[in-house]
Amino acid sequence: MEARFGRRELFRRGAIASAALAIGGRTARAEGGDRVALVKLQGVKDDLDAAVKKLLSPLGGMQSFVRKGDKVLLKPNMGFATPPERRATTSPGLVAAVARLALGCGAARVLIADHPMRKPEACLRLNGIQAAVSGLDNVHVLLPMAATLFVSREIPQGKSLRRVQIFKDALEVDVHIALPVAKSHMAAGFSGGVKGMMGLILDRESLHSRCDLNQAIADLGTVLKAQLSILDGLSIMATDGPAGPGELIERNTLVAGTDSVAVDALGVELAPLYRRRIKARQIKHLKAAAAMGVGKLALPAAKVRTLSM
């Protein structure tokens, strides 16, 4: 990993590590007609580089999204100071595999960003993502916390959330790839890529305490969209999310797509959450996001592929 900032400098800028995108950025490249827009890959074991290549193949490969010289944002879950085995955070191996693939397509810089709950040093030490990308040049892990690193943006379609402060660097990237881990969430029911956009804003607490959380997540989705979403369903924290510890269910599955809502919808049904078979339409923020046109809860069969390793 290239040392873009010294450790002290990172803290001076607000705290260790990160980046992101949203309003702006390049539009999705794998849409229209009957082009495949959603892929589920089962039987994923150790070789995550091969798995990600296979997963993205029906979508046109990573080269459909990343071009030479691009600045790429990866937005995993990495804001909890918990070890990867807890599954509150995205698999470090998956993040590294996606970063390598983006670099292989000519990305000039890869930013890996998430706003941490607290204790950014502990997050970096425990969740394993920084260590996993430590050998990669031009890859920067950032955990922004300082208000000066965020800019205020209006949400024109917002019903519950009408203005939000977004991580500045996120507005400057060419490609935004969401890399959420699928997990239970005691307040939102499920946490995936759509909910994960809260990791790119400054004040998350107000979404919980001063907004209708589910509607606010959907509102945020109208201005913060990833061109590609890759959902980590390798092992799912099925209870007591988002931080856990909770019950873990092995699924060895990855889901990718150009529609974050559809990716999450598939993720909801990968495993029972809270010991119940829940449908995507029962997750209020996904239902609200679909109603606002952020994405679709289900795609036509022609746009969906299921693969196995």
Partner: peptide, 14 residues
């Protein structure tokens, strides 16, 4: 009180 959100974010509601 609501500073619990600073500790655990989602989940504090319950």
């Amino acid at each position: 009180g609501k500073k619990l959100f600073d500790y655990m974010d989602g989940g504090a509601e319950v």
